[in-house]
Amino acid sequence: MTAVEVRGLRKSYGEVEAVKGVDFDVAPGETFGFLGPNGAGKSTTIKILCTLAKADGGSARVAGFDVATQRNDVRRHIGLVFQDPTLDTYLSAEMNLRFHAELYGMPRETVAPRMEQVLRMVGLWERRTSKVLTFSGGMKRRLEIARGLMHSPRVLFLDEPTVGLDPQTRASIWDYIHELRQQEQITIFLTTHYMDEAENCDRIAIMDEGKLVALDTPAALKATVGTDRVTIRTADDQAALAVLEDAVLTPDGIVISVEDGESYVPRLFGTLGVPITSVSISRPSLDDVFLSYTGRTIRDSEQAPARPVMLAAMAGRR
């Protein structure tokens, strides 16, 4: 049985079509990354999957239950960690979990052992009696994850699990998620717009303007971008561009996409005829994948609608 099954999902808010017919499956045990800029429709999709919003068309099943008609069954089998905090900070960590256990109707005898298990997993067992308001941001997020796991869900939804956290805390959250995958039979469905984090996923779906534009493993997606990127700075960029094929001018210099960067560079020095002042080679990242599928970097697409220099340059050369 698939953990998440989405067919032709649609949702509009008034005039705005937020999700324009999306299809995908997530296999049990998979860590599935949902990638896209704000406003791409990923929050809306996740809300529908979590039964927090109703779809206008299409269908979705989570853990085998229909999100539209079997709402409580879906809810009982999923764990949710939102990007905004949903803890009662005046209660202890333990009381927050107990509250959750009661709301989810956990069998009473399982509450105490499960609480110890999830609190130990996120390293908060020693702090269980402390009020949550004494916790740091990272500890709160870990507690939210522990709470999301409390009732042993089959699918854990993590909406931007590391947003607003410092790099060290982000790394430690990921350590917990990896550990979790080893300890529990669980499917993890997460959204993020940190490209480096998306690489932790088994598969990635890229969503843009309400549509799924790509869906594959990080390695396969990177392979579609294919080439290495050689960035050079020269004494005369225009002269260099005139000579080079498939090259674009960016604020960082001239970017050339080639199959094998290491062997290309020595040849370039010989043939360019314009003095080169610096060279760097980079392997494709998910950032590039995103760029190639949407025509924008993920950061650009969250800023003002003004098109960045690079794209203007690209458009000009086509």
Partner: peptide
């Protein structure tokens, strides 16, 4: 208050 601090959401998404 619970809504402003997010806890209402924890209550409203429960399977009850």
């Amino acid at each position: 208050w619970d809504r402003e601090f997010g806890f209402l959401r924890e209550m409203l998404i429960a399977p009850v």
